[in-house]
């Protein structure tokens, strides 16, 4: 199967800044891609371009459609959860279910009601009476009942407590995701998505600085814990990053020789958040 998204030379300029700077990437079906970057790096702009919500220059193909010109058709196959609380505050649970059931051809009402039955939401409840967590539950129930090919999540768990956050990703993996679906997620809570991602993309200042699948990330980046005596040897190998823990130094290497590093100390796969911090060093400076 061909790529779900193909972007080449994507550029978007706002008045003051370049939000996307000649970005090119491909996303294959059946992947869960984490699009991760600091605030203002262009994540949301990239998602908006994919959803046809903003204009841009360059070529972009999403599920065979041009989001600028064929947005109506595209949205039949794409679902989208922006950061919490974008459900209209006046709407009631049964109203929003009725509405989506009647305007979305791929919506499965029974499925949605089954998801809702697992929550405390009642049909007559209005969105404005719900907590953030409940709003996300409702939105997720709607979205998971839609048999879309591409699901885009923009900071979906922002402001939720840990119970809701865990539950959110768990439902998504267990009840929604399969090899025909693709999920793109942006978040700052990297630790939470770390274990579900199949692909990782770092974006910084409108450019993609890392685009790799998780296995390759594990091969390419290595973290070594080195005692004080060998620290200078490690530094000579040009690590990406160095930090101190309990008198030992932890070095992060990009594409170094694994055997050589194992001589220096205990090696392991770095966490995405450490990798992120190392890659984005100096962003706000």
């Amino acid at each position: 199967m061909s790529a779900v998204i193909t972007a080449s030379g994507l550029t978007k300029r706002y008045k003051s800044a370049l939000a996307l700077d000649n970005v090119s990437f491909q996303i294959a079906p059946g992947r869960i891609v984490g699009l991760i970057g600091p605030n203002g790096a262009g994540k949301t702009t990239a998602l908006k371009a994919i959803l046809g919500l903003t204009d841009f220059t360059g070529d972009l193909n999403v599920l065979g459609f041009d989001p600028r010109k064929q947005r109506g058709k595209l949205m039949g196959d794409v679902c989208f959860i922006a950061d919490v609380a974008v459900l209209p505050r006046w709407i009631r649970v049964h109203e929003v279910v009725d509405f989506v059931a009647n305007v979305h051809p791929r919506f499965d009402r029974a499925k949605c009601e089954a998801f809702l039955a697992r929550t405390k939401l009642t049909p007559n409840q209005r969105v404005r009476q719900m907590s953030k967590g409940m709003i996300v539950q409702l939105h997720l129930a709607l979205v998971m009942a839609i048999d879309a090919k591409l699901l885009i999540l923009d900071e979906p768990t922002l402001g939720l407590d840990i119970l809701y956050r865990k539950q959110f990703y768990q439902h998504l993996l267990e009840d929604y995701f399969d090899e025909n679906k693709t999920i793109i997620v942006t978040t700052h809570q990297v630790e939470e998505v770390e274990h579900i991602l199949t692909d990782l993309m770092f974006i910084r200042d409108g450019k993609i600085v890392l685009d790799s699948d998780m296995d390759a990330v594990g091969d390419r980046f290595i973290e070594v814990m080195v005692g004080a005596d060998k620290a200078d040897t490690a530094r000579a190998l040009k690590p990406l990053d160095e930090r101190q823990v309990f008198g030992k130094s932890i070095f992060l290497f990009d594409g170094a020789n694994r055997a050589a590093l194992e001589q220096l100390g205990e090696t392991r796969r770095p966490s995405i958040s450490d990798l992120f911090v190392a890659t984005m060093k100096g962003t706000y400076a």
Binding site: L53, G72, M75, F80, I81, A82, V86, R89
Partner: peptide, 17 residues
């Protein structure tokens, strides 16, 4: 109103022209 409270993002996520 839906632009102000951002619920436009929900309406626009549905296949409605």
């Amino acid at each position: 109103d839906d632009r102000r409270d951002r619920s436009i993002l929900f309406w626009k996520s549905l296949p409605i022209s």
